[in-house]
């Protein structure tokens, strides 16, 4: 049953991922990506990582998708379909994707689980979905599942305190970076006459005269 659910979600996720790269329309591609994020959240649920699943929906479907949409609205060629993603950027894009894939595969392959490093098949079998097995660490696991936010918080504040503050620093850096980026896009100073683009807004609303 669990395997069936996994296959279903993974299949849907794969379809969404394919849609993302094959769609000609940027907004649709971003929407497929959001659907893919949602599928990942569903996978987290089947792994009993409920908190993570909810965070995935909140951050990726709720926030990053909006950021993507606003980013698309910033580009010149938002007009649907005409956004051409093919051509010169196809090969570098493929290369970058391949690199990410290799890094991820390497990382997953070398991941060390609580029960030590094992082959992939062992790792796949470990987080069994039935509560009956794994008696040795059952109590800890039950607590982690029932009270995941609190366990995560305790870990943040003790074991990963430094990482936590670094995350804060990273977020601040992101915010400052965005601000600088916006300032870079420097507008004409108030003394200069506005350039043509602004006095003649491209698609002015239908003239009433």
């Amino acid at each position: 049953m669990a395997r069936l659910v996994f296959l279903l979600i993974a299949g849907l996720g794969l379809l969404a991922a394919l849609g993302t790269i094959l769609s000609r329309d940027l907004v649709r591609a971003a929407l497929y990506l959001a659907a893919f994020f949602f599928c990942v959240a569903c996978l987290f649920v089947t792994l009993e990582a409920e908190f993570l699943a909810v965070v995935q929906v909140l951050i990726y479907v709720g926030a990053v998708a909006i950021l993507l949409m606003f980013g698309i609205m910033l580009t010149r060629d938002a007009a649907g379909g005409s956004a051409d993603l093919s051509g010169a950027w196809r090969v570098p894009g493929l290369l970058a994707g391949l690199c990410v894939f290799v890094v991820l595969a390497f990382g997953i392959h070398n991941a060390v689980s609580p029960s030590g490093k094992g082959p992939w098949s062992g790792i796949v079998a470990r987080p069994a979905l039935e509560p009956s097995d794994g008696v040795a660490w059952k109590a800890e696991r039950v607590r982690a599942i029932d009270d995941m936010p609190r366990v995560v918080g305790e870990q943040f504040m003790t074991r990963y305190a430094l990482t936590f503050e670094l995350a804060g620093l990273l977020l601040t850096a992101a915010l400052v970076g965005a601000v600088v980026l916006v300032r870079e896009d420097s507008p004409p100073t108030p003394d200069e006459p506005a350039d043509a683009a602004s006095t003649e807004p491209e698609p002015a609303v239908a003239a009433t005269r």
């Binding site: 929407l31 909810v54 929906v57 479907v61 709720g62 926030a63 998708a65 029932d146 995941m148 936010p149």
Partner: peptide, 21 residues
């Protein structure tokens, strides 16, 4: 669910996407 409040906020944050669409 143990993260009920976060769940609530997460699912209600989907609606801006619908509005944008």
């Amino acid at each position: 669910p143990p993260s009920g409040l976060l769940y609530l906020i997460a699912v209600s944050s989907i609606s801006p996407l619908g509005i944008f669409l």
